[in-house]
Simulated assay, not measured.
Amino acid sequence: MTTGRVLRNRYGLGVAAVGGAMSAFGVGLAVGNLLAGHARRIFTRDERTLALACVPLAVAMMLFMAASVGLTGALACLLVWGAALGVAAPASTAILARRAAAAKGQVLAASESINNATVLMLLPVAAGALAAHGPAKAAMVVGGCCLVGVLLTVADARIAE
């Protein structure tokens, strides 16, 4: 929703063009899902994979929102954003499932519910920042939340070692 508004405002895209541009995110997500197992083998632990996937995610999100990178750059940001999420999501799910032991179903369900609630709470805040203060402030809101996630992931990875 917020990314579509940025695409419309910054590049003058119509509704159909925004939908087409957002397919870059979907392609990135598919690529990330395909690379998730490979990333797990390279980084050896799901915690490390998750922490490292958060870096390009944060960079892509903040560049997309705060920088005027041209339409090609914006599409590249959406592609990287999707790919990073495609790698991060399976790693996160694997960590939760492994740590939950017998309560896997409840833990995964609670995690998904909390994730959805967080997104639903963050979107209006980011959209409000975008409308009132422009993309840079919206990037600070989204990027700040992503930074907190990265810090928590790194701290958790250190505790788990």
Rank of each mutant, 00 (worst) to 15 (best):
A139P: 09
L75K: 08
L78M: 14
V107D: 05
A126N: 10
S68E: 15
M65I: 06
A58N: 10
A89L: 14
I114N: 00
E112V: 13
K104H: 10
A94W: 05
S92L: 13
L85V: 10
A117Q: 01
L78V: 05
A126I: 12
W81D: 11
A103E: 14
R99S: 14
L108R: 04
A67C: 14
L79E: 08
A117V: 15
A136E: 12
T118G: 14
L50P: 00
A101I: 08
V142F: 10
A83T: 10
L130K: 08
L50Q: 03
R98P: 04
V119E: 00
C145V: 12
L108V: 09
A84Q: 06
A83K: 05
A103C: 06
A138M: 04
T49S: 12
A129S: 12
K137P: 13
A129P: 15
Q106T: 15
M140Y: 10
L96N: 08
N115R: 11
R98W: 09
L96D: 03
L96H: 02
L52C: 08
V69I: 11
R48T: 15
L57R: 05
T72A: 13
A129I: 01
A138D: 13
A97P: 04
K104S: 13
A94R: 00
A83F: 02
A83W: 01
G128W: 05
L50E: 01
V107H: 01
V142C: 15
I95E: 06
H133P: 13
A100I: 00
V69C: 07
A109T: 13
T49V: 14
C54E: 08
H133C: 03
G143L: 07
A58R: 03
T118E: 00
M140E: 13
G73S: 07
V55K: 02
T72R: 04
P90R: 05
R48C: 03
P56L: 03
A60N: 06
